[in-house]
Design a protein around this nucleic acid. Sequence first.
DNA 1: CTGTATCCTTAGGGATACTG
DNA 2: CAGTATCCCTAAGGATACAG
Lengths: 125, 125
Amino acid sequence: MSLEIFGDRWSLLVVRDLMFGGRRTFKEFLDSGEKIATNVLAERLQRLEANGIIERRRDADDARKVNYALTKKGITLAPVLVEMIIWGARHEETAAPPEIIRRMVADRDGVVAEIRDQWKKDRSL
Amino acid sequence: MSLEIFGDRWSLLVVRDLMFGGRRTFKEFLDSGEKIATNVLAERLQRLEANGIIERRRDADDARKVNYALTKKGITLAPVLVEMIIWGARHEETAAPPEIIRRMVADRDGVVAEIRDQWKKDRSL
DNA sequence: CTGTATCCTTAGGGATACTG
DNA sequence: CAGTATCCCTAAGGATACAG
């Protein structure tokens, strides 16, 4: 089963950050609010890469930097993540849900389409 | 986050069995293919009940039997589960996907609606 | 910055026996 | 049948130091 991805808290968070959080570097993931250890993050990034969900490339400008990005396969996770987030928004008391989440609730498929378009743009740079 | 549910392999499997597998008793969950230990299953059933996802009732006929069922909140997980299953079907080589899964891929919202209707019927018995 | 390498602790979970 | 109760053990993960 695909539970390797869906059944894992940390993998889900990394994909979420990549998909909606605009985060792409090791450090950015680390600073994502939730406290993840460096070894754990490294292990998950490897696993996600092995599963073809993300890919890593060195930054063109700064050779020390590494950028992670969702692969074509990875971006297909959007509908699942969006559905999870909608569910969460409906069943937990969030003071004021961010704009993006309100839009998901109102127009799920529209937001998924946007996410895909944005990914294509970023990718073709 | 709702990761208490989504981030847990066993919880996901129980909900799946309840939603699509027609399983409702402790023993049926145990025999679900995946090998889950009795103590683990018991713990997850409690947790899911505490979270308002499932409810337990004694069988009307056989007092020794206990039936589990999705609550109103639990059934709202259908779109998420369906989306996960569709993703899985698309990215793993399953020899011959069961009918229900083929229907999900073809008509996601239709299947979700059916699941809900079926739940209502079962519930009003 | 992007990780490895260790160490150490704990929770999760398998196996099994047993109870109401 | 539907769980509890143990025991035991391993793998996951937190903390921290260090390296390329």
